[in-house]
Amino acid sequence: MSNASPGAPLDTSNDPTGDQTGRFVIQPNGRPRPLSPHLQVWRFHATMTGSILNRMAAGALSVGSVFFVAWLAAAAFGPEAYATFSGLMGSPVGLLIWFGITLAAAYHLTAGVRHLIWDAGSSLSPKAATSLTWLSLWGALVIAVGFWAILFATGKVTL
C-alpha cells in the first residue's frame, strides 16, 4: 500500500530494478533483494571471532571422532594393533592432536554455556557479550591446559 496521494509521482530513488551499482540481486522469484554486507563492511570483533572458533571447534571435534573410532578399532583388533596405536598417539605429535581435540571440546563447551546465557536473555549488550566471549575463550584454554597438567602430574601421560 502506497502513502502517495492519487496522481502524485512515485519516488523511484530507491527503486532497485534499475540498479547499476551491483548492490542488488534478482531472486529466482523475480524480486530484487539487497546484497548482504561483506567482510569489508563489518568491523571484526570478539563475538565474531567466538562464533567462527565455535564452528571450527565443531569441525575439529568431527575430525577428532575419527581418532576416537581408531582407538576403539585398535582395541578391538588386539594387543598388537592397540600397542601400535598407543605408540603413535603417545608420540609428541599424537599428544598435540589429543590436546587440540581437548581444546576444541573445552571451547565448544564454554561457547555452548555462553549461548545458553544469551538464550536466557542475559549479557546481550555489546560490552557484556564481548566480555562473555573472552571469558569463554580463556576459560576453554584454562580447562584444556588444566586437564593436561593433571594428566602429566599424575603420570597418566608422559613424553
Score class of each variant (00 low, 15 high):
16 P>D: 03
26 I>R: 15
28 P>V: 07
20 Q>E: 11
39 L>I: 11
22 G>W: 00
19 D>R: 01
12 T>I: 12
33 R>H: 11
11 D>V: 04
35 L>G: 01
43 R>W: 05
29 N>V: 05
14 N>P: 02
25 V>D: 08
15 D>W: 06
20 Q>R: 13
39 L>F: 10
11 D>N: 11
30 G>H: 07
38 H>E: 13
15 D>P: 03
25 V>N: 05
42 W>Y: 01
17 T>L: 05
34 P>C: 05
16 P>W: 02
15 D>V: 07
41 V>R: 10
14 N>W: 12
39 L>H: 13
19 D>G: 03
24 F>V: 07
33 R>G: 07
16 P>G: 04
32 P>G: 05
43 R>H: 10
15 D>C: 03
17 T>S: 12
33 R>Y: 12
40 Q>N: 09
34 P>W: 01
26 I>T: 14
29 N>F: 04
19 D>E: 06
42 W>A: 05
17 T>I: 14
14 N>G: 14
30 G>D: 08
33 R>Q: 15
16 P>I: 01
31 R>N: 05
29 N>W: 11
44 F>N: 15
41 V>A: 06
42 W>H: 07
16 P>S: 07
43 R>G: 09
26 I>N: 05
20 Q>N: 07
34 P>Q: 08
24 F>C: 01
44 F>V: 12
19 D>Y: 01
38 H>R: 05
10 L>C: 08
13 S>P: 00
30 G>T: 09
15 D>I: 11
26 I>P: 01
39 L>R: 14
24 F>D: 01
30 G>C: 08
12 T>P: 00
17 T>P: 00
30 G>A: 11
32 P>F: 12
10 L>W: 03
17 T>G: 02
24 F>T: 02
17 T>H: 13
32 P>L: 05
10 L>T: 11
36 S>T: 08
11 D>K: 07
41 V>F: 04
34 P>I: 09
14 N>Y: 03
41 V>T: 03
28 P>K: 14
18 G>H: 08
39 L>S: 09
40 Q>T: 12
13 S>D: 13
43 R>N: 15
37 P>T: 06
35 L>Y: 00
35 L>F: 02
15 D>E: 14
33 R>C: 09
28 P>M: 13
33 R>A: 12
26 I>L: 15
26 I>G: 02
20 Q>G: 06
43 R>E: 08
24 F>W: 04
21 T>L: 06
25 V>S: 10
41 V>D: 08
11 D>P: 02
26 I>S: 04
21 T>N: 09
40 Q>S: 13
15 D>T: 11
36 S>R: 10
37 P>A: 08
29 N>R: 10
35 L>S: 10
35 L>I: 12
14 N>T: 09
22 G>I: 03
38 H>C: 01
28 P>N: 09
29 N>C: 08
14 N>I: 03
44 F>K: 15
43 R>V: 10
30 G>N: 04
18 G>Q: 15
10 L>K: 14
15 D>G: 14
43 R>S: 14
35 L>H: 07
31 R>G: 12
33 R>M: 15
23 R>Y: 00
16 P>F: 00
25 V>Y: 10
18 G>K: 06
21 T>D: 03
15 D>L: 04
28 P>E: 08
43 R>D: 09
42 W>V: 03
39 L>C: 12
12 T>S: 06
21 T>C: 00
15 D>A: 10
35 L>D: 09
29 N>T: 05
13 S>M: 13
40 Q>V: 06
41 V>P: 03
23 R>K: 03
20 Q>M: 07
30 G>F: 09
22 G>R: 02
42 W>C: 05
